[in-house]
Write a protein that binds this DNA or RNA. Structure first.
Lengths: 218, 218
DNA sequence: TTTATTTTTTAGATTTATCTAAATTTATTT
DNA sequence: AAATAAATTTAGATAAATCTAAAAAATAAA
């Protein structure tokens, strides 16, 4: 078995593996885990001894199949628990992260699989992130954001790229949730502020906000 | 915040505090937690510094109000999660302990309270152990066991005093679950073996087994 | 009430995950 | 290509939880 700490390292490496082809650098991991590069080096050596990562000095790390499998199962746990918290325990989408961060490390295959059944095989978590199945497979949304849409185009909100509580609370305050339909009325050329319609109301939304909304065009 | 280890010490001390008036000895705690008395002494000093226990050298430990509150909240968590696992996730009563042992340390008041609501305020866990409410109050069964009953007396099973998987599996194999009604047909004087009726079937049950079944006389 | 036994504590060591500061390697400029 | 800057690793230290072995205190027995 692995410690919580080891699992968090694997998760962090997994997160950035999808973003680059190269190995993930110690600094990136240190940043993600709020620790120091030197600590990361130490831990990576340990994970390498366990054959969970491949490590070449000064060249960053990549996950082995074994390591990837563990990382995926933790992501799976995390997202299933988020669904549970929102759908069954009345949590808001900005309240689930920290608790799911703890729950994800509970190690029981039966628990995870039964939870998935209980929740009726959800495909996405409350932020629209895809939930890996038992074998680690998952579908993900196309990377189209609201900021990619042009005037008069329409789409449905299917996810967010930014998970901060302040962003999620802001979206909720303007009635912008997963599944909401949006129409673009106008795009200001200067700063890309958008005027959009949500539920027949018109509002302005900054570029910073619109580029973090994943959209499915309709 | 406290570490899992600290919480487990508090839980162990709580468990044996109810059984004796005196302070709980380091050896008893060491036994409960599969560690050594010397380790217990170390940890107790730490808990004492945090004002969670009262410690007098060679005299054992007792919980402070603060320590008791934490211990109770962990017991509460543990038992609520056991109910969840059995009622919602199809776990058997002999499968829940280890997972609940991990889940109990997830620290979120909202999580616990919402879980309690979701489960509709259960008063007892799947083994008949009482679940403390938000304020730490709980009712407990009278300490009457099947072995206390005499010939022709009847009762309902409301709990077990032994939680080992082998005992629980045995009970399940003879259709003896919480809520089952039992009638005592005969008691062998020699070794206290009992012949009892469960659901109109007659079976023999050893003293070892009968003295661990908590019964409500009817 | 001494002596022997058991229990508990102390002392010193180990392991894990972390840190700071210094050294080394790689990347970037001039 | 040499000099500078940035990233990464090593060395040595620290804090938490544990252990073994020895010392001290409490309890039980003679």
């Amino acid at each position: 078995m692995n410690t919580f700490t080891e699992e968090n390292y694997l998760k962090a490496i997994f997160k950035y593996s999808t973003k680059t082809k190269e190995g993930v650098s110690t600094n990136v991991i240190a940043d993600e885990l709020n620790t120091k590069a030197s600590s990361v080096t130490d831990m990576i050596k340990k994970l390498s001894d366990k054959k969970l990562v491949i490590y070449k000095k000064y060249k960053g790390v990549t996950l082995t199949e074994k390591g990837k499998k563990i990382a995926l199962s933790i992501v799976r746990n995390h997202r299933l628990w988020e669904v549970f918290l929102v759908e069954k325990l009345n949590f808001k989408w900005d309240e689930v992260h920290d608790v799911a961060e703890e729950l994800e490390h509970i190690n029981s295959e039966k628990l995870t699989d039964q939870l998935e059944i209980f929740l009726d095989y959800p495909k996405y978590d409350p932020h629209g992130d895809p939930i890996p199945d038992k074998n680690g497979n998952f579908s993900h949304h196309k990377d189209v954001t609201l900021s990619d849409l042009s005037c008069n185009e329409k789409g449905i909100v299917v996810g967010v790229k930014e998970h901060s509580s302040s962003y999620l609370k802001y979206l909720e305050s303007i009635d912008l949730l997963l599944g909401t339909e949006i129409k673009v009325n106008e795009v200001i050329e200067f700063d890309h502020t958008m005027n959009i319609s949500i539920n027949k109301k018109n509002i302005n939304i900054s570029h910073q906000a619109s580029k973090n909304l994943i959209i499915k065009k309709t």
